[in-house]
Design a protein around this nucleic acid. Structure first.
Lengths: 243, 243
DNA sequence: CCAAAAGTGTTTCCGATACACCCATGA
DNA sequence: TCATGGGTGTATCGGAAACACTTTTGG
C-alpha cells in the first residue's frame, strides 16, 4: 500500500480491509468482575457504549502494541496482562466498511489507574460483567468470548493476581475465582475457605510476605505475593497447574 | 476502501494493511505428526517452503472462510477441524509490505485427500513435525505456536479423532496422543496400554462399533467412533474432559 | 506352534473433598 | 464480650497410576 501524493490517498492494486483492535479490559471491585467501556463520541453508534479500540496505525509495531497505545491513552494503564483473544472478521460487523478486528483481553487492577472521565469526547466507565448496556458493533459477542476465555485460562494459568495489588489476601484471591467462575452454591471445592488456600499454596508459586492487613474490625488476613520464579520453574518441569 | 475506476486502484484516506491467512495443517501418518507445506512459486522466498495461505479477499465472508477456500484449492479438504490460532502482525515479517496474518491450525486425515503434486506452480508436501526445511517468512514461529496450542488442546478437548478415519482403534488413538505430547519414556499413564483405553472410555464419548480390523498378522483391534452427542452432553454438564 | 500385537482386571496410593473448631480484631 | 471474618487440621473416598498375564491372528 502506497501513499499517493497527488490524490492524498492510500492506494493498492488489491483490496485491503481496515484493521482495528478491541480490548476487553477486566477489573475486579472486590465483589464482581467489571468491564471497561467507552461511550462513543462519533458515528456510527454515537452515544452507544463500546469496547476501547482503534484502527491499527502504520507506526504500531504490532497489534498488541496498538492495544497498549490505545489503553494507555484511555486509562494510563501499564504493566497489564494482555492476551490476544481472536479475530472478528465477519462481513457487516461495521456499517462503514469491511473491518477486521483483532480482539484482546486484559486484566488490570481496577483502581490503580485513573480512567478518563467525562471531560472530553470519550468517557470511560466500568460496568459489572452481568449488567452492562447495549453495545456498539458486535462487542457484546466479543465480551462473551473474552469471558469464556478468561474462565478457561484461570483454570490452568495463575492470572487472577493481575486483578489484584501485588500483595493480596487469600480471601481476595478466592473471591476472584468465584467472581470469574461463578460456581454453584454447593461447590465446596471452590467455595470452602479451608480447601482453597491449601490447593493454591500447594501449586508452589504463591508465597507469604509475612505481613498482614490492618484496619479491619476482625482478624487480619495474611498477605501473599505471586512468585514468578517459582511459577516459571514449575511450568518448565511440566507441573500440573490446574485449579 | 473504494475502487477507483480511473486509476484502477483501491483507495482509502487511511492506511490499511494487507491481511493474509496461514494454516498449519497437521496430519498423522500412523507414527509421526506431519505438517503440510507448499513450495513457493513466486517471490519473495521463491523456492522456499511455506505454510498454505493467501490474502483475504473481499468476497470471503470471514477469515475462517478464506482459509477453507485456500485449503480446498490446495488439498480438496472438507469437514476439517479448523481453529484460529492468533495473529502475527510484527513489522518486517513480509519484505514486500506490512502484512498482518491471521493464523489457523487444522487437523485432517492425512491420506483422505489428494494434495496437489508438482504439476503446477504450487507443490504441496507433508513434512514430519520434527524435520522440516527452512521456511519462508516467520512461518517457523507460527508452526511452533500451533504445536504448542495443539498440545494444550488435546489435554482438554477430544480433537485427536480429526486426524483419524471415522472408525479407529485404541492403539491408533493412543499413538496420536503420544505423537503430539511426546511424553517421557517412563510416563506410564500415557504409554500404558491398559490405562489409556480405561481413561479414554470413561470420558464417555467414545463408543465401540462392534467391528474389528482384519488383515493383521496378529490379534485384531476393536474399532471405535467418536460420539458427538455424548460429547456435547458431557460438556454441557461441565464434566471434566481432561486427559 | 510361534511371533507380534491387543485385550483385560486388580491393588495401591495419593490427592481431592468434605467437614468443625479456634483465633484475632475493633467496636 | 461480642460480632465478624480468618485461620487451621483431619478423616474419608475415589480416581490415577502401577503392574502381568491371556487371547487372537497369520505365517
Amino acid at each position: 500500500m502506497r501513499y499517493n501524493e497527488t490524490t492524498h490517498k492510500w492506494e493498492s492494486d488489491y483490496w485491503h480491509p481496515a484493521i482495528t483492535t478491541d480490548a476487553v479490559v477486566f477489573g475486579f471491585d472486590g465483589e464482581k468482575l467489571n468491564v471497561l467501556l467507552i461511550e462513543r463520541g462519533n458515528e456510527p453508534f454515537k452515544g452507544s457504549w463500546a469496547l476501547p479500540g482503534e484502527f491499527i496505525r502504520q507506526e504500531d509495531q504490532s497489534a498488541k502494541e496498538a492495544v497498549y497505545r490505545e489503553l494507555h491513552e484511555e486509562t494510563n494503564v501499564k504493566d497489564i496482562y494482555l492476551e490476544e483473544l481472536q479475530s472478528f472478521s465477519d462481513e457487516g460487523r461495521d456499517p462503514r466498511e469491511r473491518v477486521i478486528t483483532i480482539a484482546f483481553f486484559a486484566l488490570v487492577v481496577k483502581d490503580k489507574y485513573q480512567i478518563k472521565g467525562g471531560d472530553d469526547a470519550k468517557t470511560a466507565k466500568w460496568f459489572p460483567i452481568d449488567k452492562f448496556p447495549k453495545l456498539a458493533f458486535d462487542h457484546h459477542k466479543i465480551i462473551h468470548v473474552a469471558l469464556e476465555r478468561l474462565q478457561q485460562r484461570i483454570h490452568f494459568e495463575p492470572i487472577g493476581f493481575h486483578l489484584l495489588d501485588k500483595e493480596f489476601t487469600m480471601p481476595q484471591l478466592q473471591n476472584i475465582y468465584l467472581a470469574i467462575l461463578n460456581p454453584p452454591e454447593d461447590d465446596n471445592k471452590l467455595r470452602d475457605r479451608r480447601n482453597f488456600p491449601k490447593k493454591m499454596l500447594k501449586l508452589g508459586y504463591i508465597k507469604e510476605t509475612g505481613k498482614k492487613v490492618t484496619g479491619h474490625p476482625y482478624r487480619s488476613p495474611k498477605l501473599y505475593t505471586f512468585d514468578e520464579e517459582a511459577y516459571k520453574k514449575a511450568k518448565k518441569i511440566g507441573m500440573r497447574l490446574e485449579f
